[in-house]
């Protein structure tokens, strides 16, 4: 009986690991590609170990194009991503608090609007938003890429509301009796308890924004202002007989921040998603 259990357990682990390996194979392949010679990549070699380690892909790629190095693109991406993630966390938690904890007139209406925004296809508003920013003379700047995130993101507002519904209302009531205003309840009780949901928001918003391609494609035009994703696409298009090795090297680097954030906050990821409110 015990051996059977052990055998089952082993099979379980082997299967999970094997399938997981297949899942991340393309990513591993890309990473190993960053150490391969261009010709080896083009031959479609399956191997994850380069036949000859070519570390020079990294310095080659890092040089970027036309005197703008990837240092610049990384800085741009960090700047945009950090600010908009910060904005999302602050604004979404404020809004989520008001919609889930404060009984004010119009709350239902705004909640419905929030749900509607969540389901609104971006394409519908893409063109007019673009034109509005142009009229404001801000289309060639980071403002359209950052500012809207300070106005709350429906998806995260919703997630945080779900999470808040799991925080006992009694805490608020006790605090009110102690003389706390709604403002202090938010800053002293809800916000600290919201930590797991905030972490989830940070992870997801960070990589959404970091990977974002359409936004920068529409709004950025000077190469010096490009984000990493835009730069990599440019790199792939313009490079003569595309240097896949260097491209993969930069791609690998571009995924690094996302990985780091994820590894750092990983264990909170599931905790931060509240689903209780989804029921009923």
């Amino acid at each position: 009986m015990k051996t059977k259990k052990l055998a089952l357990k082993t099979v379980y682990h082997i299967l999970v690991i094997a399938f997981g390996f297949v899942m991340i194979y393309p990513v591993l392949w890309m990473i190993s590609g960053s150490f391969k010679d261009n010709s080896e990549i083009l031959r479609g070699s399956l191997s994850l170990i380069p036949s000859e380690w070519k570390f020079s892909n990294y310095p080659t790629g890092w040089k970027g194009f036309s005197k703008i190095s990837f240092a610049r693109f990384f800085f741009n991406s960090f700047f945009i991503t950090a600010l908009s993630t910060f904005g999302t966390v602050i604004s979404s938690s404020l809004v989520a608090y008001s919609l889930s904890r404060v009984k004010f007139r119009g709350r239902r209406l705004w909640f419905t609007c929030m749900l509607a925004t969540m389901m609104l296809p971006g394409q519908v508003i893409m063109i007019p938003s673009f034109l509005i920013w142009y009229r404001l003379g801000l289309a060639n700047s980071y403002v359209p890429l950052i500012f809207p995130y300070f106005c709350g993101q429906a998806f995260f507002i919703y997630q945080m509301m779900q999470f808040m519904s799991g925080i006992p209302k009694e805490l608020d009531e006790a605090a009110t009796i102690d003389g706390c205003s709604k403002y202090t309840i938010y800053s002293h009780i809800i916000l600290p308890l919201l930590k797991p949901a905030i972490v989830t928001t940070v992870i997801i918003q960070f990589y959404w924004k970091w990977d974002d391609y359409m936004g920068p494609l529409l709004y950025l035009s000077k190469p010096a202002s490009y984000t990493v994703s835009l730069a990599i696409k440019m790199f792939a298009d313009a490079a003569s007989t595309t240097d896949y090795g260097a491209m993969f090297a930069m791609s690998t680097l571009s995924l690094l921040p996302v990985f780091l954030i994820f590894l750092f906050f990983n264990k909170y990821l599931v905790e931060g998603i509240g689903t209780s409110g989804l029921k009923g």
């Binding site: 404020l94 004010f104 709350r107 609007c113 509005i132 809207p148």
Partner: peptide
């Protein structure tokens, strides 16, 4: 008051909703 608190906290969304969703949708 609840009204004030609610709108203060919800302000970012209301502003964003009107400027970045509603107006573009109608324009579109």
């Amino acid at each position: 008051s609840n009204e004030m608190v609610g709108y203060v906290f919800a302000f970012p969304f209301i502003f964003g909703f009107i400027c970045f969703s509603l107006i573009p949708i109608i324009t579109s």
